[in-house]
Design a protein around this nucleic acid. Structure first.
Lengths: 347, 347
DNA sequence: CTGTTAGCGCATTCAT
DNA sequence: ATGAATGCGCTAACAG
């Protein structure tokens, strides 16, 4: 009786040590190499494959990643590099979508995604060491700001890399992007089509390619229409920035009758400033955003905005990377995905 | 000449193969084990440490993670498990903050964070195999819905785990959480203090502990004040849900003069519905949210809301996990972090 | 304090 | 088609 108290049947779980390939092989009555082949699709008799498969299930075998990596000289892991200060990452739906999409794609392909947050101001020593052969097989870089040290670091990593968003020209990195310029142009044309003639542009930081491209699209539309473009105010892609820039705009350019904001967050901030100043949207000032994230339908009035296919973008980047890892070749790039103007209430 | 064309000096980059510990040791004139100790802080003479350090820099040595993991029987990686459908993850600032905070904390501690997105509806076979000894040393679980299969899966993983947010009662997992109940209570009390007597609650799904706790706090405040609580409508923590629930509320409970929304997104959706219906916020209906994410200051009127310290929460979870990995012991838990009511315009 | 000796778990030659 | 042998790069006893 005492014994059963000291060690009831349910008290001692089976030792948590995992089964090894060796044990599977023995249990299946084959050699380790045969077991290895059977599991990884090498040559093996049907009988062997079956026996190994059953032993695998019986023992709950799951291959050890480190061991496999050591032997195969690859990690089956890829880094998702985001050179951005954490405080921004928090509030950026773009990065959230990219992160989860890339993650899902990697898992599906048997790769492990690793998020590498990389504060540009930090001593990036840890990450520098990490981004080297032996830790990951490749990297996907997004939210890249023009920044020489970081660019050099990525280059010396001598790892296959693909960028989400146009990389610094001449860097030669494969990349995918959305049609920022065309999208901005269509947004601006929409405004012009509604008879607006004093359109301002609220821009993200010009150290990012997206901000530059969208500004150029804004200018393109004006040039084609023969209309003088309004001012282009540079800030960040945030609501706070939108608030501040819009206030400045009202003060310095009171004739403005429309705003092209380079992000939904910028637009939301701008609308807030306008509303607070007693201006009606879209009557007094029309506003169009860029992104079509959830903010677009959370603000009032709902945002007319340029929808960008972020999920597809991230998927394309992942596919490019995965393809390269599997074939050693790069697929077609750059892939430029189309945007679409979504007309709601704000313009 | 032909030879030089076939292999110009600049065409063949130095073999990208990394230096190994062996080479470092040889270059430093010591044995491999001494080099190993010197690098990982074991016993070694100052001279040896110095020689190894220099050789390391000279050769650009970076230790191979897989090899180290194999030898030490630990991976120095932890999983951040998010059992949530991707479509939701996209738009949840809570998860974004948790993700980046946990990531940063892990990197700092020399651990590699791995985001494990886990669609509850998927055949989770891949992940099931992943969450086992040999792939990660532990896991941090967040955004947990009551879901038996997933709970069982996490348990059978027999991995150290810590939850962000109260886990299913009786599960025994260490966890950290915010004071949801007290926070909801203070929000409701604020509304009562402004003379509101018909307060409704817009709730997230009750399969999440946070929704239940916040509802209880809503009731607590009413009970203490001797006021009959208004209806509690269940939905999700999203803006879309807020829109729908608020419409229903207006139709079914027209006497309502205030809303406690269990998230900022819910509040934003509700405000939109109210505005569309011609109700003034906060005059006709006061609204208070929960979270204090960026939405709170992006909507108009700005949200009075219960701020929750998500960064600290995530940090606490990471610390708990890291501490366990280092000492084998669990630190104090549960840690319940305080919330704070932030009064703005909406109530 | 240091070098020698064994593995860690798996993939992959090479024979058979 | 299969098994035996070898090695991936590192850590951890173990003697010295």
């Amino acid at each position: 009786m005492i014994l059963s108290v000291a060690s009831p049947a349910s008290a001692v779980p089976p030792p948590p040590r995992r089964a090894t390939l060796d044990e599977v092989a023995r249990s299946a009555g084959v050699s380790r190499s045969t077991a290895s082949r059977a599991l990884s699709g090498g040559v093996a008799s049907a009988a062997a494959v079956d026996a190994v498969r059953r032993a695998t299930e019986r023992l709950g075998f799951v291959p050890n990643r480190a061991a496999r990596g050591l032997a195969r000289q690859r990690t089956d892991a890829i880094a998702l590099v985001i050179p951005e200060t954490p405080s921004f990452i928090f509030y950026d739906p773009f990065l959230a979508i990219v992160t989860s999409t890339v993650s899902a794609a990697c898992w599906k392909a048997g790769l492990q995604p690793m998020m590498v947050l990389m504060d540009p101001d930090d001593p990036v020593h840890t990450i520098e060491r990490f981004l080297h052969l032996g830790n990951v097989d490749g990297m996907i870089v997004t939210s890249f700001h023009h920044n020489r040290p970081v660019e050099d670091l990525l280059k010396t990593a001598s790892l296959p890399a693909v960028f989400i968003g146009r990389p610094p020209s001449g860097s030669g990195f494969p990349y995918v992007d959305v049609a920022n310029r065309a999208g901005a142009r269509s947004a601006t044309e929409h405004l012009l089509g509604r008879g607006r003639r004093h359109i301002a542009c609220l821009s993200g930081s010009f150290d990012m390619a997206a901000a530059v491209d969208r500004r150029d699209g804004f200018w393109d539309a004006h040039r084609s229409a023969g209309v003088e473009p309004g001012p282009c105010l540079e800030g960040a892609f945030t609501a706070r920035s939108g608030l501040i820039l819009a206030r400045r705009l009202l003060a310095e350019h009171p004739e403005t009758d429309a705003i092209f904001a380079q992000s939904d967050a910028l637009a939301a901030g701008a609308i807030q400033a306008l509303t607070a100043a007693g201006r009606l949207v879209p009557d007094d000032l029309a506003v169009v955003g860029f992104d079509d994230f959830s903010t677009a339908t959370e603000v009032f009035p709902n945002l007319t905005t340029v929808a960008q296919p972020v999920t597809e973008l991230a998927q394309a980047a992942a596919d490019l990377m995965i393809g390269h890892l599997e074939t050693g070749q790069w697929g077609d790039w750059p892939q430029i995905l189309p945007t679409e103007l979504v007309v709601r209430q704000s313009a």
